[in-house]
């Protein structure tokens, strides 16, 4: 069992004036993920270490954090991919820290709500399912796989500078519905999208694409949505 070192961001607003890092050295099994290592620290060494986790296989989106400067899901990143010690673990940037690695997600969900993330279609539904061909289904790309972990939005410099910016996750959701052939809601969303805190704040930095644990491409989705909005208007 290799011994590995971790340098972990700590901050408890109840008791600390400012954040600091704590160092831990633990025996790790070679197959462990970052989350396994955090669990080992919390369960056997320091019960006060605080982070979110639930499904531990990359589908619930709870454990997004920054590892060696890159956003990802702690549960699916194996420690073996980080050759050098210490592995540095920080909370997601761009959000207010509640405690240690847990950040306030409310602004993230609030952006999501702003784009009306539900199917808008006022036609009475048919008795059976609406018909959608596999080709039409494919227009949504893989956007339906988004787990709302916020790794993308948190990695975006435009979001760091403009807290009113919808951010890549909310825009990816807007893309998902705008390219769903069953949806008629672009008119209801366009004012929210077509402004300086919406689609046009994206400067194609592509951090979001690199941060996404599901290998989705919000940058490309935003470009497609920009084109759609422009053609809708003109």
């Amino acid at each position: 069992m290799p011994v590995r070192k971790f340098k972990i961001f700590r901050y408890n607003p109840e008791t600390d004036k400012k954040p600091h890092y704590d160092n831990y050295e633990i025996d790790c099994e070679s197959s462990w993920t970052i989350l396994d290592s955090l669990n080992e620290i919390k369960w056997l060494h320091d019960g006060s270490l605080t982070y979110r986790r639930s499904c531990r296989h990359g589908i619930c989106g709870s454990c997004a954090m920054q590892i060696n400067g890159l956003n990802g899901l702690a549960c699916e990143l194996q420690i073996s991919r980080y050759r050098k010690d210490p592995v540095v673990v920080d909370p997601l940037p761009g959000f207010v820290v509640l405690k240690d690695l847990a950040v306030n997600m409310e602004p993230f969900y609030s952006s999501l709500r702003r784009i009306k993330p539900w199917l808008i279609n006022d036609d009475p539904p048919p008795a059976r399912e609406r018909i959608q061909s596999p080709e039409e289904f494919a227009l949504m790309d893989n956007s339906i796989g988004c787990i709302l972990c916020a790794a993308c939005t948190s990695s975006c410099p435009s979001f760091w500078n403009d807290k009113d910016y919808l951010g890549p996750a909310a825009l990816l959701k807007a893309f998902r519905y705008s390219f769903d052939t069953r949806d008629q809601g672009l008119a209801h969303r366009i004012d929210m999208l077509d402004n300086k805190h919406g689609l046009w704040r994206c400067h194609k930095i592509t951090n979001c694409f690199h941060a996404c644990p599901k290998k989705l491409n919000p940058t490309e989705a935003i470009s497609k949505l920009q084109k759609k909005v422009v053609s809708e208007k003109w």
């Binding site: 539900w118 199917l119 279609n121 539904p125 399912e129 609406r130 018909i131 959608q132 061909s133 596999p134 039409e136 289904f137 949504m140 339906i144 519905y177 769903d180 069953r182 949806d183």
Partner: peptide, 12 residues
């Protein structure tokens, strides 16, 4: 009808 994206058959 609420928009759940199911995979589709060739007939849609």
């Amino acid at each position: 009808h609420w928009g759940c994206p199911f995979s589709r058959t060739e007939e849609g």
